[in-house]
Amino acid sequence: MPEALALSAPRRATAVLGEASAAWFLVAPAGIALFLLLLGPSAALLALSFSDWELGAPTLAWIGFENYAELATDPVFRAALSNTLVYVRVVMPASIGLGLGVALLIESGTRLRAFFRAVYFLPVVSLLVAMATAWQYLLHPTIGPVNKLLAMVGIAPVNWLGSSDWVMVSLCMIGVWENLGFVVVLFLAGLTAIPADLYAAAETDGARSGLDRFRLVTWPLLGPTTLFVVTITAIRCLRVFDTVAALTRGGPNNASEVLLHMMYREGFSYFRIGYSAAITVVFLVIVLALMLVQTRLLDRQVHYG
């Protein structure tokens, strides 16, 4: 027995060493991929944002925070940032509110559930650039059906995408249309996960009205779903790009300029990669801040352990 103990001690040491190197070995592929695909590019982006590099230029100079300083005074950036935030503030609550309502209606119905689910999800799976063309036609100031309908009830035609007063309204409407189906499908999944017994309990406990049951069961139990929907929709809204690129190109007069479209223009039209990188960093900081709010603050309030 003592012999066995004496033998086992050094063997255990090598086993521990072997275990550690095996662990590193096993983690390596994922670690390398993580670095190459995510962390590396992000670090490169951050580095570029401190340079004046232009696409194709043979040299670059480190200019510190100059790009950020320029952003702070750039009226286009200010317009882009404020338009993006307006877009998020309008589209996110509107699509979440409407989406929840639609999901509740579909869930409470007995027939055609799969049909409605598919219909509402169509905008999500369709190619947005192609759909944007359809919107362009619908909202066309002279031949668009929307204005023709308005004319029938005596309302003067609106230049939906061409006037700086209306362009954000139009983009927001299209944004709600685009996000609604996504939100509906997520809420439908959340609703089916609520145990039917809880509704039965609520009814026997005296929750007579649908509103009572919604407040007692549906809303609290949808908490985790809602949190996820809020985060994902906020990020989807922050990322608004396709419709702007296809319909307005940020115009007229930067009235519909948004962060990602400005980043795209600076980087790929004017080739100012350094400046474009600085815009992207700002965008990433906003997204990260959102995710932090989700995980740190709200998560604790909606998961009931």
Partner: peptide, 21 residues
């Protein structure tokens, strides 16, 4: 009558407690 108007109390197999309360 609705369940709420029957003056009954029910105990469910899975307890059906409100998890957030």
């Amino acid at each position: 009558a609705r369940p709420a108007d029957r003056d009954i109390a029910m105990v469910f197999q899975n307890y059906a407690l409100y998890p957030h309360l």
